[in-house]
Design a protein around this nucleic acid. Structure first.
Length: 287
DNA sequence: CGGCTTTGACCAGCGC
DNA sequence: GCGCTGGTCAAAGCCG
């Protein structure tokens, strides 16, 4: 949080750095690194596949929108690591963005204006006259044959749209928990059809849903009001899912680390500590 | 039968 | 103001 700089849209982050995208008191964090990510992932029971690197690309869209939405309050901060991680454009090993963000009391996502459906959930669309406010989002670019990567939550598809300049459609999913505001978009990269871009938006207001495919869901039960958004495709600690459904870039290595494992047993949501968001998933060293 | 996907229509935001 | 595009709704159909 000491160094600030701009992050170019489209930048592929490759160096061993951790970046934090900060916004006021809330924080959106993107962690981009190689060794660091591998390290973290492995703590959660996942290892990067050395031969099939997943890379995180800072999406133009994402960055631009974030910049726009945060209206200048946005600042990208390098939280650790050495020099700016912009560069090379070469393939980096993986992505492990983690987000902590604004509270779950984020602005309502959409009023009933169009659909006539009661807006009990906040989201990205504001009422008339109000500027649309997006919830924190983060995207993963993962090499995978499977479009819809399992992440431990259950999703209901509510739309699909053709994407401009892309032969692949974009699918829209919403968490099946009626009280949950989280959404995600899944699309295949037009540049590299082997990669799937998954963009999460919002924060789960529930700690677990049970693993839909017969596996075990282990998520941050401690995220109560500051829930960590749905995690990356890598975030399947202790899961038991068909291997074919896994991102091609990761392999399960070992059971949950203590920190991760505990969430599977937590039943009472706890209020987050200041560093609760990341604290549950990101080693202090990352912050 | 309930839950989910599909898909066309609709709406809002944005650029020109 | 208009057109384009992204995002969402909701009816219909599918499937276990």
């Amino acid at each position: 949080m000491d160094d600030k700089s701009n992050l170019d849209p489209g930048t592929e982050l490759t160096s061993d750095s951790s970046w934090t995208l900060g916004h006021d008191s809330d924080t959106v964090n993107y962690f981009f690194s190689n060794d660091r990510e591998s390290s973290i992932l492995s703590e959660f029971g996942w290892n990067l596949h050395p031969d099939e690197p997943t890379r995180l690309k800072v999406l133009d869209q994402l960055v631009e929108e974030e910049r726009s939405d945060l209206a200048g309050n946005l600042e990208i901060q390098r939280s650790s690591g050495a020099g700016p991680a912009r560069s090379s454009g070469s393939v980096s090993t993986s992505n492990y963005p983690s987000v902590s963000s604004s509270s779950s009391e984020d602005p309502p996502e959409k009023s009933t204006d169009s659909g006539g459906k009661p807006p009990e959930i906040p989201s990205t669309v504001k009422k008339k006259g109000q500027k649309r406010i997006r919830q924190p989002r983060f995207a993963f670019v993962t090499k995978s044959e499977v479009d819809h990567l399992e992440d431990g939550y259950r999703w209901r598809k509510y739309g699909q749209k053709a994407v401009k300049n892309s032969p692949f459609p974009r699918s829209y999913y919403r968490c099946t928990n009626s009280k949950c505001t989280v959404k995600k978009r899944v699309e295949r990269s037009s540049e590299d059809p082997t990669t799937v871009i998954t963009t999460y938006e919002g924060q789960h207001c529930h700690h677990t849903v049970g693993f839909p495919r017969g596996g075990i869901i282990c998520h941050q039960a401690t995220f109560a009001s500051h829930m960590t958004p749905p995690m990356s495709p890598f975030y399947y600690p202790g899961m038991h899912m068909p291997r074919e459904n896994l991102p091609s870039t990761v392999v399960q290595s070992h059971p949950l680390p203590v920190e991760a494992r505990e969430c599977s047993t937590v039943s009472t949501p706890q209020l987050p500590t200041d560093d609760g968001l990341l604290g549950d998933i990101v080693p202090p060293g990352m912050r």
